[in-house]
Amino acid sequence: MFSFHKTPRLIASTCCGVLLASIPLVGAAEQTGRYGYGEPATDEQIAAWDIDIRPDGMGLPEGSGTVDEGMAIFETQCSSCHGSFGEGMGRYPKLAGGEGSLTEDRPEKTVGSFWPYASTLWDYIHRAMPFFAPQSLTDDQVYALTAYVLNLNYIVDGDFVANKETLPKVVMPNHDNFTWDDPRPVVNNDRCMKDCKEEATVSDSAAGKNLTPSTTGPLDEGITQ
């Protein structure tokens, strides 16, 4: 129904299948666990797509960038959404500040206040930023922006040079406040069926709050908060 158009390569492999038809192949995949489909990925192909960076620095390329270089790039490429100092414009993410706010009513989860690993910053800027032109920055530019955002958060000094040796050594302020084992279920309600509690009282209602977009008619563009 939706088989993708056949390419000459597939036709070629089908031909081979015909030639080999006299050799019993039934169950071959079951025995070896392999079907032999696809092509080997070359080192060049892997290098071009393998862009992930790990906290231990695995994946970081050659190159470097300074805080000052990062500031200049940030102003032209990033500040329209994130503000010149990472303060965030409108509802776009705030990148700096928020230290000590994680226990407050309105926590500000920024690179400085929340992010556990500096490597994530390099990885994410490189793979997805700037928002309107992802994967358009050079490695040096990414190093520079990483240095600048870390400096905005007082994590590195102004003379910091980011490269594949220095970045994995950066310890993020909130690193120790993460746990990586799911503690749930942390709540498991009782399955009470009768007289389970006193009469229920309503503590809050969505009625009259005027936050709900239209649920009929054209899509609602109007409500802003």
Partner: peptide, 13 residues
């Protein structure tokens, strides 16, 4: 064996 699969390849499995 690092591999690259086309969408046709995938549908043969």
């Amino acid at each position: 064996r690092p591999i690259i699969l086309s969408m046709e390849d995938l549908q043969r499995f």
